[in-house]
């Protein structure tokens, strides 16, 4: 079980500067939240998918396909409850609310994919260094990267521990909701305790390697913006510019939609 998303391959996206990749992620985020109409989200969606394709990161989407299906399914239904429109279709679903639900679902999925694009192509250290060069303090950047690093560790221990308990006869399937929750206790407690212990060793190892010895530090990793980074950022700026213009000019909304 390995939940580290970084793909150690060489693609055009991998070669971008860490800062560029972070900005791409933030820009996708901004462009996505501007519009209510799926049609306006579509071009941005295509760009994000293109980035994914160029980064050869589709296997990471595949890896979390169940989560994505689940989100799609619940989100398409759920958002109808929070909006209504003028063209009634069936039950609580109107044409406008359906469009809105599709847009929201696209937003969620695309944000996840955009995040995956970032994590698939950017090493942890590169991410930290990128964030620092964009102005974040080192300790904050390091904290973010550490929490990302904990994910695979915790998922491995969840896996081992649930195997240990299953071999003692724990059956996680079946039973009501309360009973199911109760069944997770024998897994959660050991996970919790072993995570605390790991974190403790991690903290000791960190300090023993001189973490925080001085106010300044150097970086072995080199980061340089080159022409391709500038081109991508310029393109990114253009898209954001167009999106903002359209939004302020009143495009991209769904006519007749009422949100609760």
């Amino acid at each position: 079980m390995n939940i580290d998303f970084y793909l150690d391959i060489d693609t055009v996206i991998h070669r971008f500067d860490g800062r560029t990749k972070i900005i791409l992620f933030l820009a996708s985020f901004l462009a996505l939240v501007l519009f209510e109409d799926p049609l306006y989200i579509l071009p941005i969606a295509l760009l994000i998918l293109l980035q994914n394709f160029l980064a050869r990161a589709w296997m990471n989407i595949w890896r979390i396909r169940f989560l994505l299906f689940l989100l799609t399914f619940t989100s398409i239904i759920m958002w109808n409850l929070f909006a209504s429109g003028e063209t009634h279709l069936f039950w609580f679903v109107d044409l406008e609310s359906l469009l809105y639900s599709i847009a929201r679902t696209m937003l969620i999925l695309l944000m996840i994919i955009s995040g995956l694009n970032l994590l698939s192509t950017t090493r942890n250290e590169e991410l930290v260094l990128g964030m620092i060069k964009l102005g974040l303090p080192y300790r904050v950047g390091f904290a973010i990267s550490t929490s990302l690093r904990m994910v695979p560790t915790i998922s491995t221990s969840i896996h081992t521990i649930s195997q240990a308990q299953r071999s003692r006869g724990l059956d996680l399937e079946g039973g009501g909701i309360l009973e199911r929750l109760r069944k997770f206790i024998p897994i959660l407690i050991p996970v919790f305790i072993s995570t605390i212990r790991d974190t403790n060793v991690f903290g000791m190892a960190l300090e023993s390697k001189g973490f925080g010895a001085r106010d300044d530090r150097t970086y072995y990793l080199e980061m340089n913006m080159d022409r391709s980074d500038h081109l991508v950022l310029a393109f990114c700026l253009l898209i954001i510019g167009i999106s903002l213009y359209l939004e302020f000019a009143g495009y991209g909304d769904i006519a007749g939609l009422t949100k609760f």
Partner: peptide, 20 residues
């Protein structure tokens, strides 16, 4: 628990980096 970098080189670099 005592290794935390994403490649071998960066793991070795971590200590010296802290001492600038």
């Amino acid at each position: 628990a005592q290794l935390f970098s994403t490649n071998v080189e960066l793991e070795v670099a971590f200590g010296p980096e802290n001492f600038a």
